[in-house]
Design a protein around this nucleic acid. Structure first.
Lengths: 200, 200
DNA sequence: AGCACACCGGAATGCCTGTTCCACTTACGC
DNA sequence: GCGTAAGTGGAACAGGCATTCCGGTGTGCT
């Protein structure tokens, strides 16, 4: 689960050994830099961290958005994997639901770029590449909800679409120590929100 | 309530008539442009909309952040005025609390720049100018909470700081039709969150 | 009316960042 | 070993945008 890329070039041939190595380095560096700096990480920094020239970076990914798109799809795979794990392992429907949201929130708290993307003040180009992966995540989420509702622990009117919405909200409070006075505690925020999804 | 500016120049003298007129135009234009474009509105557009040269704009406000800071303080006055109104007019503690949040959310939904500021991925320079106004808002909010808790309609552990946090979350879903697939409905989000603040 | 000085406009400046270009290396099949 | 297509680095380019500069303009006061 959760691999990364078809290692072929457009002519069908497999990537040359050094090219493949560089590609991996770039993806790794991008993951790190995007995670800490968010969507406005700089291409040059990514290149530097990958110990590669910018030119090389652009040989592998046509634009910044394409690069981010790749990572985004991967992140969504992570999230839906985690959801499906809860679905399989956890027998208590409430814990399965709440636990998934908690775990996924934890994941997003470590990646500023996904947060930025989810809160989406940016171009659609980033999203395009990952429709499928996102759909998978929604599917898993839907199952969690149905199960919770069947057990009578989740409000009847809770929708799949509500979850990304709430997560978007929680992500907004994760901005690493922004200038907003008074500490924001996203874990608490999440608990508050979760309580709002409980069957009264 | 809710005025705007000391109309004096640094030498103490009152502003020249035309200067005062321009200043007003600038503030008006800035309010509009910031409201619709958010924090990354462009100075040139503000100047254009105010029918004024950029130079003039900079004569009145040293930087973009200073200008935004001014508007921000004003917005906070709006919000706390609304809170105090509820406090005075509404006798039902729950409605006073929930109504204020609803009204204030409605206000913020009309102003992209405050939203951006609250979600704060930006410089502290903007905030500085409005500490006082923000403190006022928190004070009013605190009263709403205390009253609600006394009446037993709000969870006992709800804090003043929780409110900006939740509002921050709701604001995140207001991004005017961002690229995120599936419509986000901030009003629903707010209701969900409000339910989370209710006494069980 | 006439003079100073406050004000104005907007072209020009400077910086930041994504993207392109191309002379130079290097992997790999023969 | 050699030739060549694939791959590389990083200087240079381009567009966007806040901010500055300064020659010109109009207000307010006497």
């Amino acid at each position: 689960m959760n691999s990364m890329e078809a290692p072929t070039t457009l002519t069908g041939r497999p990537l040359r050994a050094d090219a493949q190595r560089n590609r991996d380095r770039i993806v790794g560096a991008a993951r790190a830099v995007f995670a800490e700096r968010g969507l406005d990480a700089q291409m040059e920094e990514i290149a530097r961290r990958a110990e590669v020239g910018v030119g090389t970076l652009y040989r592998h990914f046509p634009t910044k958005e394409a690069l981010m798109g790749e990572l985004l799809a991967d992140r969504w795979r992570t999230l839906s994997d985690q959801a499906r794990e809860s679905l399989a392992e956890e027998s208590d429907p409430w814990e399965a639901f709440a636990g998934t949201l908690r775990r996924n929130a934890e994941t997003m708290s470590a990646d500023a770029a996904v947060r930025d993307t989810i809160m989406g003040s940016d171009s659609p180009a980033v999203w395009e590449h990952s429709e499928q992966a996102r759909a998978d995540l929604l599917e898993a989420t839907a199952e969690l909800i149905v199960r919770g509702q069947a057990a009578g622990v989740l409000r009847e009117d809770l929708t799949v679409e509500d979850v990304p919405m709430m997560m978007c909200g929680v992500c907004a409070t994760m901005g690493a120590g922004g200038p907003a006075p008074g500490r924001l505690d996203w874990r608490r925020h999440l608990e508050l929100v979760l309580d709002g999804t409980r069957r009264r």
